[in-house]
């Protein structure tokens, strides 16, 4: 049965169990939020997503408030905006949020919130200095930008289950730690980069793209990861035919945004001068370039010859671990029904 809630006086219908934030987002209503991520659910930490609800005394966090039939919600009342401004100001003034030089500029949930709330610069500044941590091969940590939302930690422990991250220390000293607060490179971190993808701000940065393009300069190109048979969906963020960054495609099967270190960071091979761009035919001691037609005719001819001389079982098919499942399927189909052999294998098995 569909239910109705009223947001800023306008009715919206929804089905099933939903939070107020979810209903608002579905209907294009922006409520600033910093710690909620759909993959890990509400964290109730940032308190920026508050709304005013008829009949409730205190402001409510929309990320965890269940939408109820007939509920009347205000997202832009003065009380809401004042609270939101206070929190965003507190976060901006207790850290080093210099958007000009930040890699996350244009793709930052804190920046979005500040812009929405009309905050030009924080009204007060609390001096604090925390060192960047640069030991990782692919990930840079900038604790001065961390807003302690905990999304990276949830990602590490609940999504990819690497169990490397947690919060250490307490209160204003609370910080994300790798194992027992060791440099990233010495820790058990495999740099899958899930934490980078979960981070709403510029506190965790993919190093390879640094200084090469701001977010709005790149175009996303959706593709399938070429590394293994899982077929993870990813987005290449491309500028001038160069990949600046790679992210897992959120909400898409099979990986729902997760990637491994190779899929996320190991894309340089595509720029290698040694990549094969045409078929090569071995002749004498070396190879010579050939056209696809010539190469395929040669292979087909040799197959036919071997089958005639020694029967189809003299041929075996091995598919590459980097092929996607569909390609491996087609390979065995070809060998079983066209060539007529059950000699099928896969390189990852040997």
């Amino acid at each position: 049965m569909s239910k109705n809630i009223f947001i800023n006086g306008k009715g919206f219908s929804f089905e099933g169990e939903k939070t107020v934030l979810e209903v608002a987002r579905e209907n294009g209503i922006y409520i600033p939020s910093l710690c909620y991520h759909e993959k890990v659910g509400p964290a109730n930490k940032c308190r920026v997503c508050v709304v005013e609800v008829d009949g409730m005394k205190d402001l409510q966090t929309s990320c965890s408030l269940a939408a109820a039939d007939g509920m009347k919600v205000g997202t832009t009342t003065e009380k809401v905006l004042e609270a939101q401004r206070m929190v965003v100001n507190l976060l901006l003034s207790n850290g080093n949020h210099n958007c000009l030089s930040c890699e996350a500029n244009g793709d930052c949930e804190l920046q979005d919130a500040a812009y929405y709330l009309g905050i030009e610069r924080p009204p007060f500044v609390i001096e604090e200095h925390k060192e960047r941590e640069d030991s990782g091969a692919f990930i840079l940590r900038d604790p001065e930008k961390c807003i302690q939302c905990g999304r990276c930690i949830e990602g590490c422990n609940r999504l990819v289950v690497n169990e490397v991250l947690d919060f250490g220390y307490r209160g204003g000293h609370t910080e994300v730690v790798w194992d027992n607060d060791m440099p990233l490179d010495d820790s058990n971190c495999v740099e899958c980069g899930e934490c980078v993808q979960m981070c709403p701000v510029g506190a965790l940065i993919a190093k390879k793209g640094m200084g090469r393009a701001r977010r709005w300069e790149t175009k996303p190109v959706r593709t399938t990861c070429p590394y293994c048979g899982v077929g993870c969906q990813l987005d290449l963020h491309v500028k001038d035919d160069q990949i600046i960054r790679v992210t897992g495609t959120e909400g898409a099967q099979p990986n729902m945004g997760h990637l491994c270190v190779k899929g996320r960071f190991g894309y340089d091979f595509i720029y290698s001068d040694e990549r094969l761009t045409t078929p090569l035919i071995r002749e004498n001691d070396g190879f010579r370039e050939a056209s696809w037609d010539e190469a395929l005719n040669l292979v087909a001819g040799k197959f036919t010859q071997i089958i005639e001389e020694s029967g189809p079982d003299a041929i075996a098919g091995v598919s590459c671990a980097r092929s996607i499942n569909e390609d491996s399927y087609n390979m065995q189909k070809l060998f079983r029904s066209v060539i007529g052999t059950n000699n099928i294998d896969h390189c990852a098995r040997t």
Binding site: K45, V87, L91
Partner: peptide
């Protein structure tokens, strides 16, 4: 230190 208004507000 869990929630922002308390963590940053006290400070």
């Amino acid at each position: 230190g869990q929630c922002a208004p308390c963590r940053k507000g006290t400070h």
